[in-house]
Design a protein around this nucleic acid. Sequence first.
DNA 1: TTCCCGATTTACT
DNA 2: GTAAATCGGGAAA
Length: 205
Amino acid sequence: MGKKLPRNFYLQNDAVDAAKKLIGKEIFTRINGETTSGIITETEAYLGEIDKACHAYGGKKTDRTEILFEKGGKAYVYLVYGLHYLLNATIGEKENPQCVLIRSIFPTKGIDIMKWRRYGSDENKDEITKLTNGPAKLTQALGIDKKLYGQSLLSRKIWIEERLQIPENDIVSSPRVGIDYAEEFKGKEWRFVVEDNKIEEMIGK
DNA sequence: TTCCCGATTTACT
DNA sequence: GTAAATCGGGAAA
């Protein structure tokens, strides 16, 4: 079993570094006694007050964003397009509202449970990676919704563990997705991806 | 109180 | 390739 990431990991004041380091870690939820997990394969960094793509840009504190301003290591969950919940890990000391969006995971534990949550049955025969290869897909599979807003990432409901050491060369950076409004920040390569087949090689599937 | 539109997914043509 | 689904945050009025 892996080791839970310590509080200190989330207190660094550099979401870009944190986003890179979260690649290859394993995220778990335990909802209604059912444990599900996956290895993180895609992340994006949101750099807080200075970042026009970040919800806390300009220090904007609202009911939705207030958790970003607390000490790092919490789940920032919010609804997009009226339909989908997205999950972020908050990063930084108090009053430093950075975060990392988890955009894709490689399913590991509780795969049948995740299939039920996504498809309403465990019969689906799509490639396993399709189960959780999107920011809203993985929240649905992991059973994450508004109830986990603000939940500590060192809790029993949701947490992240050490897992794979991904070689630097296997992590590809690119511009973030869906933030064209962010002007000079839209080109920043603050998105990090490792290919699914690298994960498969490393865990021997 | 009204109005606009989004850090997406899925099912169409 | 385009469009529908569907909620609520937050700015404007």
